[in-house]
Design a protein around this nucleic acid. Structure first.
Lengths: 156, 156
DNA sequence: GCCATTTAGTTCAAGCTTGAAATATTCATG
DNA sequence: CATGAATATTTCAAGCTTGAACTAAATGGC
């Protein structure tokens, strides 16, 4: 075992496990609150919000596979959520010229308007729930997590 | 607006939103890996692991409502997972003397043995995924999150 | 051009998750 | 002790999630 290896010691391992449990708890608390607020104020769900949030960052739209890639959920998962959002007139599937297999998913005008309203509240809710973090702290920890997620992803 | 209020400024709000998105991404990355490992190596799922982990901390067992309280998931949710774990012989429902409504859920010997094997690997996986954090960093951030989750919970 | 492989997307079964409604039991209080 | 409120749990419908199987279309040798 290399001298620079930091994994494997019992104390560090326990500390990391505790950190993971805290991350898990925090994200569950926040998600539960978001879920409830989205339901009460917009009659929607977190997965629907996530899909619309992803699409809102791409005016040209996203292919189904790109969408599931961005959200890091399975392929088949997105199909159902997009189906329902499409039924509600919040997005459309646009055929891709030159590839009859694929389609671009794009928010409609209604979808963009609706998401804008939701996103504004969403940011406010997050701001309140994470009020305990100063802007500086938030940036530091965010950067720290970014590195971790990147390292982890690149390993796979 | 009070001079001590930290929410409401645009920059802080954006920093907190970014932090939340990083927390979300990190926990999804870690959960996806755990899910896959649990499936491949133990033919089980994360919710099943979570239930067994909660029960493993209480030799006397937990009532269904306590279990859903600890896990912070809905009441009805636990019923199904416990049903399946019971079918697999990993836990039992024990009647509570003096209250015919309730039952205590307890791991069986097989359940404890099986969980011990899973927990050992689980800790190793977490240690590897969070290897980028030193023990000190992990403790600091864990404490930070603990405070946040507590503040948030107490508000509700 | 033909056929194997790859890529895009949907469908499917099984399990997870929620919130609400239903059932059963206990508790409180008059 | 009767009965209405509270508590413990299950059931249910709808939606989410996964991984695998499937369909359809594009691509790349040969």
């Amino acid at each position: 075992m290399s001298l620079t290896t930091t994994t494997g010691t019992d104390a560090a391992s326990k500390a990391r496990l505790r950190l993971w449990l805290r991350i898990l708890k925090a994200s569950r608390v926040v998600e539960a609150e978001l879920r409830e607020n989205l339901r009460n104020e917009f009659a929607t769900t977190l997965p629907r919000f996530d899909v619309m949030a992803a699409l809102s960052r791409f005016d040209e739209g996203l292919k189904m596979s790109e969408l599931s890639g961005v959200l890091r959920v399975s392929n088949g998962n997105v199909t159902g959520i997009v189906d329902r959002l499409q039924d509600d007139g919040l997005l459309v599937r646009v055929p891709v010229p030159g590839d009859r297999r694929a389609s671009l998913v794009r928010l409609t005008k209604r979808g963009r308007d609706e998401f804008a309203r939701q996103a504004e509240q969403h940011e406010r809710w997050i701001d309140e729930m994470l009020a305990d973090f100063t802007a500086g702290e938030a940036s530091d920890i965010a950067a720290r997590f970014d590195r971790m997620a990147t390292l982890q992803r690149d390993k796979t």
